[in-house]
């Protein structure tokens, strides 16, 4: 696994390049991104992205050849935008494999402001919670016959929305409250410069990741 700081930089670079590159350039970005995932030893993830990207591009090419009407063109536009965003998502997916503690201390080392770090820490902590809580609630909604999965319920979308959101809010507000109470008894807002037990340092293998900087910028000329 590469240094999280380089991964983060590459993610930013890829995100901004996506605006400027041509369609072929975007494809090159995606290939680089998949190679990047592969080089870190995430074979499964890389394979999944590869297959997904292949099918996605094929679909896109197919749509280009069809002489379409308004709706089709709108769909095409959406897909084209997505195809530009995909490389960034692929980079992000490998960054997501870094444990939060290591990620945060890496970001801290490149002087990301404390307020942003704290927000990020909370967000990272909360996404998995939201997902698992929401799954539990949907399961119970399913038992009661009011879940999103049952088609007949979509006749009353507002009510359905209420049944999905209200318990989730009730539950997460309480969890968030407990969590921030616990965090504040553990010095989360102490006015010290945070230290880290992670040894964040540049290793030889990381120079491979640095190569990607040039390769990524190179896509501008494709």
């Amino acid at each position: 696994m590469f240094d999280a700081r380089i991964q983060f930089m590459l993610l930013l670079l890829c995100g901004s390049l996506a605006v400027f590159v041509t369609n072929t350039g975007a494809m090159a970005l995606a290939i680089l991104a998949i190679a990047f995932v592969l080089l870190q030893g995430y074979f499964r993830l890389a394979a999944q992205w590869f297959i997904f990207y292949f099918i996605f591009s094929a679909l896109l090419l197919l749509l280009y050849t069809v002489d379409g009407n308004g709706i089709l063109n709108a769909a095409l536009l959406m897909l084209a935008i997505t195809s530009k965003m995909l490389p960034t998502l692929i980079f992000a997916s490998s960054l997501a494999k870094v444990p939060t503690g290591r990620l945060l201390s890496s970001l801290q080392k490149i002087n990301v402001p404390k307020s942003i770090l704290l927000t990020l820490a909370v967000a990272l902590r909360f996404f998995p919670v939201l997902r698992s809580e929401s799954k539990l609630i949907q399961e119970n909604a399913h038992i009661r016959g009011i879940s999103l999965r049952q088609l007949k319920n979509w006749r009353k979308p507002l009510l359905l929305f209420e049944y999905a959101i209200v318990p989730l809010l009730m539950r997460t507000i309480r969890l968030a409250d407990d969590l921030s109470a616990a965090a504040s008894t553990r010095g989360i807002d102490a006015p010290y410069k945070k230290t880290s037990h992670h040894h964040i340092a540049f290793r030889t293998y990381d120079s491979v990741a640095c190569l990607f900087f040039f390769l990524l910028i190179g896509t501008l000329w494709i």
Partner: peptide, 20 residues
């Protein structure tokens, strides 16, 4: 509702890191 990190050792040192 009291854990703030994702891995045991990160959780153990969390408070010390906050105190610098």
């Amino acid at each position: 509702s009291q854990f703030f990190t994702s891995i045991t050792e990160d959780e153990l040192v969390f408070e010390m890191e906050n105190y610098g």
